[in-house]
Write a protein that binds this DNA or RNA. Structure first.
Lengths: 335, 335
DNA sequence: CTGAAAGCGCTTACAG
DNA sequence: CTGAAAGCGCTTACAG
């Protein structure tokens, strides 16, 4: 890169100290009572030299970087991609930049990302925590780094979070299926002990129990990291036995794998099998009978998480817990 | 945040200078011939105090931040989300972090992002440039900032880039439709003068001409920033008149809007209307007759762009131009 | 009203 | 083999 213009260059050119230049360029000319003429000269010089402040130097001095670290499971997953976009927009409004990383629900990756971001002095974190990385998050808490968890939280840890009311989301989905006359309702979930998954499963179970369907409870748990073809195969096997007449999928990716399996196995929806998906997806709309699904309020989740984080970065140490209601978008797939 | 541990703290504790600590922690102990015992003490102290180097201070001193700035049209768009993920993975391998921003194809936003990233001293840029922001990119070139353009390039500017061979992609798509017996082949594109769009359109036109279908050329251009409902409506209107018996969509978003419109208007595919989409999308698979589409080699594009950028950051000033071949995934939607 | 100076936490050329 | 010191480009408490 070519020679960069610094405060000093402007100071030299105008014939003042870097302090004065700094004041003027940061809009403190009134407060510091810098002469109007000097101020003008400085501004002109800055423009003329095409001065761009070195945010790194500034960050070092001020001890803050105006950067937010965002860690999701996978930025390529539309759920997180959309969330990232909302976080980005909110961050920009408040003059923050976001650096991001994908953990793949993997604790080792997650830790590496957190360390990197800490080294880079991010002012705060928004994290969708992975399984088993409690100690990493706890280390952040001990360092008193502003932090909000998203999508899931860690019940043992005292942090702010923004999540879905997963229990009610799935509970209501089951009820909807029951109302539509389904009884043998199964669930396809991830093998994951985190709260978002366990709450979805709990919502399913309790709803089944409350509807006197305890004996029909059937949950298939699938590993997160399986390629979709594998997921599809597993779900496909479920379908050939067809012990259920309705299925609820616990995530977007599972819903998609399920749709592929249903298509491959040529099951008629909703006649042979009713379906409820999670999150939105265009594919849901083009499935033979458009999918009923549990919709998360992504926009608000993203906004709230940034709002809370900014709050914490301003010094508010009170943890805020937000649980948002989902919406069941009912369409043809449940009969 | 709580008190942070610095090099000095370790130095004090062990009783050496910060220089020695720095050498040891950066693996220069051999080179600088630091005593084995001292080195061990330093490493132990660092571990004990849970030392995390301040990357900001390091960046200021070294003049490089190990950060890549990635600017796409919209990180929530799966095409760019997937690209971002690949860039992220490649960057991490080489110890780089990526900060990202979405331009919405808007020059003002794009410029704000570029300025922010320059201020933050990113070591290099990967940019999907917006329409009319030539001067911004040019400013980057003048500053000698390592840069690779992606998805589109600016023909007037001397930069590295990684793009699709858009001309051939669409040319071949037209040929495929012709071979399938279609003649009244239309195209739905964005109102965008950038090279990726103009090349797609040129590919369409030339193919039509080469197949003696010059008179059947019909291109509908739609503004990028329209909400999908609007796009759908516009395409819907095309469908009611049905001047075409086949349509090629120039982007993923247009393909989706097109599918919704076709569904709403209950056109039979491929009997009444053949379709070819751009990029992949799960919705393509679940459409009544699975969509034939032009597939981009995303993985390689992401990798190559990072590889070239790293190359430039190492000092290689030679611009590299990469144009990748697409693949036509043929399925039922063309008959 | 304005400037000299310290200092943020590192790295590295230099001296011994 | 090891350390003192300068310096990256800013901000800001302090002095005058």
């Amino acid at each position: 890169m070519s020679k960069k213009v610094s405060l000093k260059d402007i100071a030299t050119k105008v014939g003042v100290s870097t302090a004065t230049v700094s004041y003027v360029l940061n809009g403190l000319e009134k407060e510091k009572r810098v002469g109007v003429e000097v101020a003008k000269k400085i501004k002109d010089a800055a423009r003329e030299l095409n001065y761009m402040p070195n945010q790194i130097a500034r960050s070092l001095r001020k001890g803050s970087t105006n950067t937010i670290g965002l860690i999701v499971a996978d930025i390529a997953n539309p759920f997180f991609g959309q969330l990232a976009r909302i976080v980005e927009d909110e961050a920009i409004k408040h003059n923050y930049t976001v650096i991001f990383g994908s953990s793949d629900e993997d604790c080792v990756k997650s830790e590496a990302l957190i360390d990197t971001f800490v080294n880079r002095q991010v002012d705060g974190f928004i994290i969708a925590p992975s399984e088993g990385c409690k100690s990493q998050i706890n280390a952040l808490i001990n360092r008193e780094v502003p932090l909000v968890l998203i999508d899931r939280y860690l019940p043992q840890l005292n942090t702010s979070y923004v999540v879905l009311d997963n229990f009610t989301a799935v509970y209501d989905a089951v009820t909807h299926l029951v109302e539509k006359g389904h009884r043998r309702i199964g669930m396809v979930a991830y093998e994951n002990s985190l709260i978002h998954m366990s709450e979805r499963i709990r919502g399913y179970k309790e709803a089944m129990i409350d509807h006197q369907l305890e004996k029909e409870i059937r949950i298939k748990k699938i590993a997160y990291n399986l390629p979709r073809q594998e997921m599809e195969k597993i779900i496909g096997e479920m379908l050939t036995h067809l012990i259920s007449d309705a299925l609820i999928f616990a995530t977007n990716a599972l819903s998609l794998a399920g749709l592929y399996a249903v298509k491959t196995n040529q099951k008629k929806v909703p006649e042979e099998l009713a379906l409820i998906g999670f999150d939105g997806n265009e594919a849901f709309d083009f499935f033979d009978s458009p999918l009923t699904y549990i919709k998360q309020p992504l926009e608000q989740m993203g906004r709230e998480s940034v709002r809370i984080l900014l709050d914490e970065m301003k010094g508010n140490t009170e943890n805020q817990h937000i649980q948002m209601a989902s919406k069941l978008i009912t369409r043809a797939s449940c009969g």
